[in-house]
Design a protein around this nucleic acid. Structure first.
Length: 602
DNA sequence: GTTATAATGACTCTACCG
DNA sequence: CGGTAGAGTCATTATAAC
């Protein structure tokens, strides 16, 4: 088949074309590091029979022999999972969007279907921490009732429904009764789990409680959970007698490997049509983001609040040259997605061509790890330089291990002989999909740039998910953007060619608000941008006013603070109840308000 | 007062092995 | 099945420098 012309610019992309014209991935692979399998301590064993079997196995999935051989050499024969991941990565790297190769997704998707009728929703252990008193300030009567009910131990989503059900004059006690009744009714209805065929249960989780060497902090954490567990009402009957004893420790969902979400660009297979729970269906559409590797139970809670939608876990390494493992919960359609153009480079050597010259053969990295908010110290890069300068050309094993460890930990790249360095802010902008100098100038310090960038969306990834909106809203959208940061959502939509009619952006940091405002003016937006500093100020009245003014929001998007969830946090990784990360509940609060207001008058 | 610098582990998940 | 080792992570804090 022939090529889709480049001028097509997004509109006409269709990945579901019928024929597998050219399987073939052109042999011109992206420039791999000069690593070359021969160099590294001959891991390639020769059991050629099993090997050729492996090769044909993957070729049957549609990968070229060339690629398969390379992938096997990289990972060793034993590790077929890793081989597959490498193949997927390289397939995604393939530049030209017109040369679709078919990908083997069938085998990675529906592998586990072992969902018994078991309860996956353990998560009603929700309490506002004591310092959240001011949560109720400036909010409506409805909000106050919700807050009280939640403190009583009711799941907020159920409390919300009950408040609406009972009407404005109902007392808290009446509402509580109503919730209870609804729970009893739900208990007798056996279905509901059937909606999530992909969720599986982590059976090993029960061993979590009996770990022998628990540190103090850990104990506290567990005791806290225990305490909370005692206080909430079970939403449904446990399926197996007293089996809910470890309910609070169970993690109900697993993160798929490879972390490709519901679909990737350049992938032949169409994602199956998912069935969303009734309460999840818009308007408005919504899109929520946070770190994938959060403490246990966090995503269960988030999902539970966001209408029981299954999270889509995606690693941005399939969209750019750096890892970024994130979970997304949204109610968008997932068919007919298309990627942002031009496609971003998916190897460091390609994205940062200057580094290629200095990249030593014993550094096998082709992609960076997650871009974070801090960079390596100059002392460290100097230690590395002297260590290498005092070694032979291929440095001894010990030195290599030291250097590789630090390079991975701090995302260092090669910028000279024996010289490694952290990324520059503009390089981070590029890797994350922002225009050059997006965060530069306007009185923003370098440190602040790193911080803001480290907290941002990866634009290509998000844009791929949002691309389905383009055909649905040819006249543009009204956007409610919470925790906007440096405007990843806005940039993604703009780059998709989706007109931004009215944007209400909520962002605490003045620096970030300035960045977004600067971008807005610089890109000659014709819509209106309203920025608000504090989510707490966004109450029902204000939302109702804006909704009436704009005719409703088409999309509510936001990634709530991750700092109490992120693994790098050594001081306050307190989970969803942490000081900042608890703002997730404001995302839910506002989203649900918008849904209710729009549900009434539209 | 603001900005840059450097030092500061733990929690998960996974692969592997016996 | 349990133990172990390895790897990766949208960060916070104290201090120096400006």
């Amino acid at each position: 088949m022939d090529l889709i012309s480049d001028s097509d610019d997004g509109d006409g992309f269709q990945w579901e074309s019928d024929e597998d014209d050219g399987d073939a991935i052109p042999p011109s692979n992206p420039p791999l590091p000069p690593d070359s399998a021969a160099g590294t301590s001959g891991k390639v064993s020769e059991a050629s029979s099993s090997r050729s079997e492996l090769v044909s196995h993957f070729m049957a999935m549609g990968f070229s022999e060339d690629m398969v051989v390379k992938a096997i050499e990289e990972n060793g024969e034993g590790n077929s999972e890793a081989i597959l991941e490498t193949l997927l990565t390289h397939a995604a790297i393939e530049k030209s969007p017109v040369k679709r190769e078919q990908s083997p997704i069938d085998c990675t998707f529906s592998s586990d279907e072992d969902v018994l009728g078991d309860d996956i929703s353990d998560v009603s252990n929700f309490e506002y921490s004591s310092e959240d008193e001011d949560y109720t300030e400036g909010t409506s009567d409805k909000d106050r009732k919700l807050s009280v009910l939640v403190e009583m131990g009711f799941p907020a989503d159920e409390a919300f429904s009950a408040i609406n059900r009972c009407g404005p004059s109902a007392s808290v006690l009446e509402i509580a009764d109503s919730i209870h009744a609804a729970q009893l009714a739900a208990d007798s209805a056996p279905t509901e789990d059937d909606l999530f065929p992909n969720w599986s249960e982590n059976k090993a989780a029960s061993s979590y409680a009996c770990g022998s060497s628990v540190k103090n902090k850990r104990k506290l954490y567990e005791m806290k959970k225990m305490k909370q567990r005692g206080s909430f009402l079970d939403r449904k009957k446990p399926c197996f007698g007293q089996g809910n004893l470890d309910e609070g420790f169970r993690s109900g969902l697993t993160i798929p490997k490879p972390m490709i979400g519901f679909s990737l660009p350049n992938q032949k297979m169409k994602p199956a049509n998912r069935i969303l729970p009734e309460a999840a269906i818009g308007p408005p559409y919504f899109y929520y983001e946070n770190v994938a590797l959060a403490p246990k139970g966090v995503w269960e809670t988030i999902s539970r609040f966001l209408y029981d939608i299954e999270p889509e876990f995606v690693d941005s390494k399939f969209f750019c040259a750096a890892n970024r493992k994130r979970g997304y919960i949204h109610n968008l359609p997932i068919q007919n997605r298309f990627p942002l153009q031009p496609l971003s480079s998916r190897t460091v050597q390609e994205a940062l061509p200057m580094t290629k010259k200095w990249w030593p053969s014993w550094d096998p990295r082709t992609q960076l790890n997650c871009l974070q908010t801090c960079i390596a110290s100059a002392k460290l890069t100097e230690r590395i330089r002297t260590a290498l300068a005092n070694s032979d050309d291929p440095p001894p094993e010990r030195v290599q291990r030291f250097v590789m460890n630090e390079c991975k930990k701090w995302n260092l790249v090669w910028v000279g002989l024996h010289k490694v360095a952290p990324l520059e802010p503009d390089e981070m902008e590029m890797l994350l999909g922002f225009p050059r100098d997006h965060t530069r100038g306007g009185g923003i310090s370098r440190t602040e740039r790193y911080r803001s960038l480290g907290n941002s969306f990866q634009v290509d990834t998000v844009a791929y998910h949002l691309s389905v909106l383009k055909d649905m809203f040819p006249n543009g959208i009204n956007l409610l953007s919470l925790f906007s940061g440096i405007g990843g959502a806005e940039v993604a939509l703009h780059r998709l060619g989706i007109h931004l009619r009215n944007v209400v952006s909520v962002e605490l940091s003045e620096i970030n608000r300035n960045i977004l405002r600067g971008w807005w003016e610089q890109t000659n937006q014709t819509g209106t941008l309203i920025d608000i500093a504090d989510v707490q100020q966004l109450n029902g009245d204000r939302l109702e006013q804006m909704i009436n003014m704009f005719g409703g929001f088409d999309l509510v998007i936001g990634g709530s603070p991750c700092n109490n969830l992120a693994g790098s946090n050594r001081y306050s990784r307190d989970g969803l109840e942490g000081k900042e990360s608890a703002l997730f509940y404001d995302y839910f609060r506002i989203l649900d308000l918008v849904k209710n207001i729009m549900g009434k008058s539209f």
